[in-house]
């Protein structure tokens, strides 16, 4: 791999009063044991937009994403320093209740991971645990979220069926439905289409574009066409740093940084 000057970077600032910021990180560092994986990343994410995080494998884009709702807390030896600003609070602090925070910042993973429960229970399980017990509300929630995730028509007669019997693409859309049933502000998606076939991927992308109306979405993807198709902003990650952050259009047509240019034109990665 070519060596790039890492001080050569362009990060678009969105906190200019023109944009509403849903989430922002300030100098975020992540380390596993002795090894630092993210070297101080500061990015602002605009509300009701889709932001794509791209970069080669090992660039730290997934690690960064997983830090945003503190999923890395559960991996022993991981340390996250710096600020994650959400609604004026630094959620990367001990005063913040991490469980409450994750209700507002939801996540969908690379591997579809439905629970070994029925489709209905997959969606209603967490809301029930959080205290929602009215059957009518739950029924409505199942219908709305499955519709939003584009799965309703396929499963509406089979809600009691085990979720594990669904196809991979259906499982992933169920996971999205499950995540939005929590009515989060922000939805983090970690390469959600990497195990899906092209048709399922296309359906998923349509779903994301519709969800954008109500959710702020941050998506990690290794698929540059996907980033170009769905996202409004794109951040390019390289070896644990965000080197370029700009409107997607600009990133893919006129990147300002050599590394970004090489990556989006397929020279490495």
């Amino acid at each position: 791999m070519e060596k790039y000057d890492r001080s050569d970077r362009y990060l678009k600032q969105l906190d200019d009063g023109q944009h509403e910021i849903a989430l922002a990180t300030k100098d975020l560092h992540v380390s596993y044991g002795e090894k630092e994986a993210i070297h101080g990343v500061s990015l602002d994410f605009e509300r009701f937009k889709i932001t794509a995080l791209i970069g080669a494998s090992g660039s730290g884009k997934s690690t960064y994403l997983r830090s945003l709702n503190r999923m890395n807390d559960n991996i022993s030896g991981t340390k996250v320093t710096g600020q994650i600003m959400y609604r004026g609070l630094d959620v990367n602090s001990n005063q913040i209740d991490v469980y409450e925070m994750r209700k507002h910042i939801g996540m969908v993973f690379q591997q579809p991971n439905p629970f070994a429960k029925s489709i209905y229970d997959n969606i209603t399980f967490a809301p029930k645990r959080h205290g929602e017990h009215h059957k009518k509300v739950l029924d409505e929630m199942v219908e709305t979220t499955l519709k939003q995730a584009g799965l309703w028509d396929q499963v509406k007669d089979d809600l009691k069926q085990s979720a594990l019997a669904l196809s991979g693409g259906q499982q992933q859309r169920l996971c999205i439905a499950r995540a939005i049933a929590m009515k989060p502000d922000i939805l983090l998606l970690d390469e959600p289409a990497s195990v899906l076939d092209p048709i399922s991927t296309a359906t998923l992308e349509d779903t994301l574009l519709q969800l954008k109306e109500n959710y702020t979405i941050i998506i990690v993807t290794h698929n540059m066409q996907q980033a170009a198709r769905v996202s409004d902003y794109t951040a390019f990650f390289h070896l644990g740093d965000a080197l370029e952050y700009d409107e997607t259009r600009k990133i893919f047509t006129r990147p300002k940084i050599k590394a970004t240019e090489d990556y989006v034109s397929g020279h490495f990665g």
Binding site: L89, Q95, I96, D97, Y99, E100, M101
Partner: peptide, 9 residues
């Protein structure tokens, strides 16, 4: 609610 200890905690 974010600053308070939740039921889950």
């Amino acid at each position: 609610s974010l600053m308070k200890r939740s039921r889950a905690a």
